[in-house]
Design a protein around this nucleic acid. Structure first.
Length: 253
DNA sequence: ATGGTTGCTTAGCAA
């Protein structure tokens, strides 16, 4: 199974690139974030024509997540009833559960959005613990809006106090891993220095001033059959790219 | 050079 996660920063703005990329990369499962579209306005036809089922949890203007897949999911769960933001979508394919997350950015340390981010991360862990065991085959992937380590940041001194690198956010990521998740990209690239997001401004991409914010975490039974993981940097190049590149991992099931 | 980019929605917000 080839699995990808990609923050597309508007599926309508990215549709042409997305369809071309699906055709080229041929992933089996794709977790998308920041659709910025309602369920009704989701481009179902072009995605179906590309050969993919689409489980969609949309929202007008902001957020929105989808799981595209070659096979139809057996079961789909979306978000939390009392959270109006579309940030979480889970689908099961056979025995494998795929949880797609668009974690809150947090904007500014100390703000209301920051408090929401930390609470949201904590709640996700409670949710996982309530419904799953670390011994099950499960993938948690998406845009986590956290760089796990300074090795995941081109300029750690610039970002050290930001919402993307703050110790409190990193602690919650550590806590998720301690529950029983493995950062499979890190396992294949222990030295770091590979990024998945670059600011649109200040020539960040040509200068490779990026951060690794998009992750594929897996429970041990899946992590041990993950044969490779990589960032598709080419998708950050050319006309009208997202500010995020896709992250991919191959699992020999 | 007191900014820098993109997208949604319509001048301001979010990332």
């Amino acid at each position: 199974m080839l699995l990808a996660t990609w923050n597309v920063n508007s599926i309508r703005a990215r549709l042409e690139r997305l369809v071309a990329w699906l055709d080229e990369a041929q992933p089996d499962v794709v977790c998308l974030q920041e659709l910025k579209v309602t369920d009704e306005a989701f481009p179902h036809e072009p995605i179906a024509e590309a050969g993919y089922h689409a489980a969609v949890f949309g929202q007008k203007t902001y957020n929105g997540v989808a799981i595209l897949s070659r096979d139809e999911p057996a079961e789909v769960r979306r978000g939390w009833d009392d959270d109006p933001q579309a940030r979480l979508l889970a689908a099961r394919f056979g025995r494998v559960t795929v949880v797609n997350t668009y974690m809150p950015n947090g904007q500014e340390v100390g703000s209301d959005k920051w408090a929401y981010k930390l609470a949201w991360m904590e709640r996700l862990q409670e949710e996982l613990a309530a419904h799953h065991e670390p011994t099950e085959p499960l993938i948690l992937c998406g845009d986590f809006n956290v760089a796990p380590d300074d090795a995941d940041v081109a300029e750690p001194e610039v970002w050290s106090e930001s919402v993307l690198c703050h110790p409190d956010a990193r602690a919650r990521l550590d806590s998720l891993r301690q529950w029983g998740l493995i950062d499979v990209f890190r396992r294949h690239h222990p030295d770091g220095g590979i990024y998945s997001w670059w600011d649109y401004r200040m020539l960040a991409f040509p200068k490779n001033r990026g951060l690794r914010l998009d992750h594929i975490f897996a429970t041990e039974p899946l992590a041990e059959c993950c044969t490779e993981a990589w960032v598709d940097r080419d998708e950050r190049k050319g006309a009208k790219p997202s500010d995020h590149a896709p992250v991919l991992a191959r699992f020999e099931l």
